[in-house]
């Protein structure tokens, strides 16, 4: 091996430890010096690893950039919330959902009689009309009773056209308890006994309240109780109607 060959071989075996390299290095002072220098350079290089300290302005710049970055990220995050409910889906979307759920039997088709105004064509349509009518009447009577607080006038009114009697008559004429119970027994037979019970209770409540009003026409509390009793009965009818609808 000559000097040129040794130099070329040093790219692969850097420290000259191969047998032929060692043989040449024993006889060549210049190549020995070269290998020693190269090894020295390599070993000194590690001193450069952490030799430098960055200027304080590096951190200042990083700090500013981090603040900017944070501000931008916060802005993006806060703006992103505004996107949460920004878009309205096309009505097609709900149509498709509805169709799919109907096909799977998870929802029932809407009832044709489910409009705000009860249909006149159904069997118990008259009863459904009468429920709101009775409720309105009851409220009107309540207002009437409250406004006519003069004892004598109320007593006279009750004697000639008793409000409770009128309400009771109207309610009974429009919404006969037996008719209601019959409807309940047809649609939801299991509930009939409960409704009969409830009707009995509410009727007793009405009778008691009427008795109190008759006995003490000046008693505000008694009149309020009578009004509440009628409201309860109207509510009971409404509940029954809702349950008996398909």
């Amino acid at each position: 091996m000559n000097c040129v060959e040794l130099q070329e071989s040093l790219a692969e075996i850097e420290d000259g430890s191969r047998a032929d390299q060692r043989a040449h290095l024993k006889t060549c002072a210049e190549c020995s010096a070269l290998v020693a220098d190269l090894n020295l350079i390599a070993s000194s290089a590690i001193d450069l690893r952490e030799a430098e300290e960055p200027s304080p302005r590096v951190w200042n710049s990083i700090e500013i950039a981090v603040r900017q970055l944070e501000a931008e990220l916060n802005l993006i995050a806060s703006s992103a919330i505004e996107l949460r409910e920004a878009e309205e889906p096309s009505p097609r979307v709900w149509n498709s959902i509805e169709i799919a759920l109907r096909q799977e039997g998870l929802i029932r088709p809407p009832r044709s009689s489910r409009s705000l105004l009860p249909s006149l064509s159904s069997r118990w349509a008259w009863a459904r009309w009468m429920v709101p009518a009775a409720a309105v009447l009851l409220i009107a009577v309540g207002v009437y009773v409250r406004q006519h607080s003069l004892a004598q006038q109320l007593a006279t009114d009750l004697a000639t056209h008793p409000a409770s009697a009128a309400v009771s008559d109207v309610a009974i004429a429009g919404l006969n308890d037996d008719d209601l119970l019959q409807e309940v027994s047809e649609q939801t037979p299991a509930m009939k006994a409960q409704y009969a019970d409830n009707l009995r209770s509410v009727n007793e409540y009405i009778q008691d309240a009427k008795g109190n009003v008759d006995a003490n026409p000046n008693d505000e509390e008694a009149r309020r109780s009578l009004l509440e009793a009628y409201q309860e009965k109207a509510m009971l009818f409404e509940l029954a109607m809702d349950r008996t609808q398909p």
């Binding site: 210049e30 020693a36 220098d37 020295l40 350079i41 000194s44 001193d47 450069l48 030799a51």
Partner: peptide, 14 residues
């Protein structure tokens, strides 16, 4: 041939 004589100054190496 001036050998590096066993030491290298860091600044010179740098």
């Amino acid at each position: 041939d001036l050998a590096l004589a066993g030491s290298i100054d860091r600044l010179h190496l740098q």
